[in-house]
Design a protein around this nucleic acid. Structure first.
Lengths: 202, 202
DNA sequence: TAGAAAATTAACTTGACAGTAAAAATAGGA
DNA sequence: TCCTATTTTTACTGTCAAGTTAATTTTCTA
């Protein structure tokens, strides 16, 4: 029983991964169920055996991506390091993950066009939880007087925007590795918040 | 003759504007020519009379948006003000325009999925020109020693990303007006580059 | 190893939408 | 007012992809 269930789950995951892959290249409407299936050497019917319809498949793709992101940031959060370090690590982790999946994320842009309101509720909840992690870090930094006071929500979204935009312009051409890029961006974004060294001399 | 031509041009523009509007809500594949037409109280056939096909219509939508952006930033560029002010004004203008059209821009995200390579070349050229304005300001600021040295390309894209992301999260609910929001974001983004006041006291 | 349950396929239906073409309406000048 | 250009509509075709269904194959178990 559990074995069989695991097999089904595995298959589902396989399909979801491919869906993420294809969807990211062609967008929701540009992707056909047939194409997803063919890429996995199966037929459309099989995909429909595991997923009710295209929407549901895409929905699960989003959930998987979001959950993995959440897991990552949760790990960072638990570490016993200064808050500015946490923020930096979170930014780096986010960008690296984004570039790895360079993709699925891109269809997160207009979910209202696609999902049912129940599905949207779940997606937005997860997104929000993710965003709140950043809020917490920012607030913490402000309270500890490491960061400038700021409109937390605005700053959070500046950071998210700058990070998520990376897929739009970064080319994997060797100029800068993903890691280097992520670190650079983290440093620049930190500047928005961190109080300068100079203050310590006053 | 010229009068007739102007009439045609006006009609085309009317269609383009509606196309931008509908496309922005539903995305490229989610938008039908019929819908664009119906919204303008005309029939699909009329739209095809003015535009060869859907792709061409969308293409012209993009060009219009980009050209208007360019015009705006060019105006800012010509002003005789300090470079950090120029940057700030450019950011504010960009965000305000973005929120006004809250829309058409969103389909700029994956143009490769839609346009022919000739069309793409034009679009990318315009985009690039736009980006270069920011590069110039950043470089200028660094040379004048007003800004920190930085990887210009990375910083430019952080700024663009943070700005363009606004459509994803800003709600027109009165908490903050567009103008206030734009100004706040400009201030935060400036911090990435501007050398702090404190330096003057060293 | 028989036979049921699960998984897969092939062939089909359906609907939607891009694009077309010819007819109809509207204008504007002679 | 008639005639020609332009503009608009109507009704159509063709295609493509989502989703279905029944038949077939595979897998598992008693």
């Amino acid at each position: 029983m559990s074995l069989k269930e695991r097999k089904v789950a595995e298959k589902k995951e396989e399909i979801i991964r491919m869906a993420i892959h294809v969807l990211s290249e062609k967008g929701y409407h540009g992707t056909t169920m047939e194409e997803i299936a063919t890429n996995l050497l199966m037929t459309k019917g099989t995909v429909y055996y595991y997923f009710k319809d295209k929407q549901e498949l895409l929905y699960h793709s989003q959930i998987m991506l979001l959950n993995r992101s959440l897991q990552q940031i949760q790990e960072v959060k638990q570490q016993q390091i200064p808050v500015e370090e946490k923020l930096k690590k979170s930014i780096i982790a986010h960008i690296e993950y984004l570039l790895e999946e360079r993709s699925g994320f891109e269809l997160m842009l207009k979910p209202e066009q696609i999902f049912s309101s129940e599905q949207l509720a779940v997606i937005f909840k997860l997104r929000d939880t993710y965003g709140e992690f950043f809020d917490q870090m920012i607030t913490e930094g402000i309270e500890e007087n490491v960061f400038h006071a700021a409109d937390v929500k605005v700053v959070r979204n500046i950071i998210l925007g700058a990070m998520n935009w990376v897929t739009q312009w970064y080319k994997e051409d060797g100029q800068k590795s993903r890691k280097e890029l992520a670190e650079d961006i983290a440093v620049y974004l930190q500047r928005i918040l961190i109080k300068q060294e100079e203050n310590k001399w006053k």
